[in-house]
Amino acid sequence: MGAAFEIKTMAQLAAEDKHPEILFWVGCAGSFDARAQKVTVAFCKILKEAKVDFAILGTEESCTGDPARRAGNEFIFQMTALQNVEMLNMYNVKKIVTACPHCFNTIANEYPDLGGNYDVVHHTQFIKELIDEGRLKIAEGGVFEGKKITYHDSCYLGRVNGVYEAPRSILEQLDNDLVELKRSRSNGLCCGAGGAQMFKEDEPGDKRINTERVEEALASGANIIAANCPFCITMLSDGVKSFDKQDEVMVYDLAELIVNNNKL
């Protein structure tokens, strides 16, 4: 465990008249969900390790509005999104990184219509950038050497935004045996959380979508399911539990894998 440190907010930095290199958009899941908080913390450790000058919005951040908009509630979306855009523009934010593909998609693709234009990257892309620039080194002979890891493409990073390679190249660096799922990349199967499904009961059917997806992941024989989205992590973990495999198969975000590997 590396040394503890303090996370600065944009407001604090603005008071010191400083502008960080990048804003870390934490998102609702990353802020409040106990499981996703671990990813948030892991990603902060990586940012610190790579000496990235970053800040968060802290209590000034609000939901991007993605689930409201996809549920059909444009009013709620506009209310929260316009506030966010106002805030981001006030701090003159240029570059944003987020560990949530839904936040990533909404800020990158939908905020421009609302007057918010930023350079937005998903944390897997940013981590890859850090590695490529030599700012982050992946420790050799790490804990994942030879371990079987499979990767679940989230819809909003993969099929919707076409990011397939950055997460895979990170996994390759971890020196593991990456097994692809039958349905991967543009054919990836949804975890079942998108489109505001996360916040409601399933419609009547034969089985849950996460069960279908986890069946496929278990069939791959992997011990670790790597994901890039807090909602996928919830869905996949629930699915693994439903098969009573939680002691054999772990669901991790890529950031957590790096933290474990590098013992940060």
């Binding site: 503890a4 440190f5 303090e6 996370i7 907010t9 934490v26 609702c28 899941a29 990353g30 802020s31 409040f32 969900d33 908080q37 948030t40 913390v41 902060c44 450790k45 968060i56 802290g58 209590t59 951040e61 609000s62 939901c63 509005g65 689930p67 409201a68 549920a71 509630n73 709620i76 209310m79 929260t80 506030q83 505001a196 996360m198 916040f199 409601k200 009961e201």
Partner: peptide
């Protein structure tokens, strides 16, 4: 089921109605 999510975003800026501050997780670091 969606109503709590809508009202929560509207009132607290989060998809869940959670009393904690949004940056409480920073205490872990």
């Amino acid at each position: 089921d969606w109503l709590p999510m809508f009202t929560s975003i509207e009132n607290t800026g989060s998809v869940w109605q959670i009393p904690d501050a949004r940056d409480k997780w920073t205490e872990q670091l």
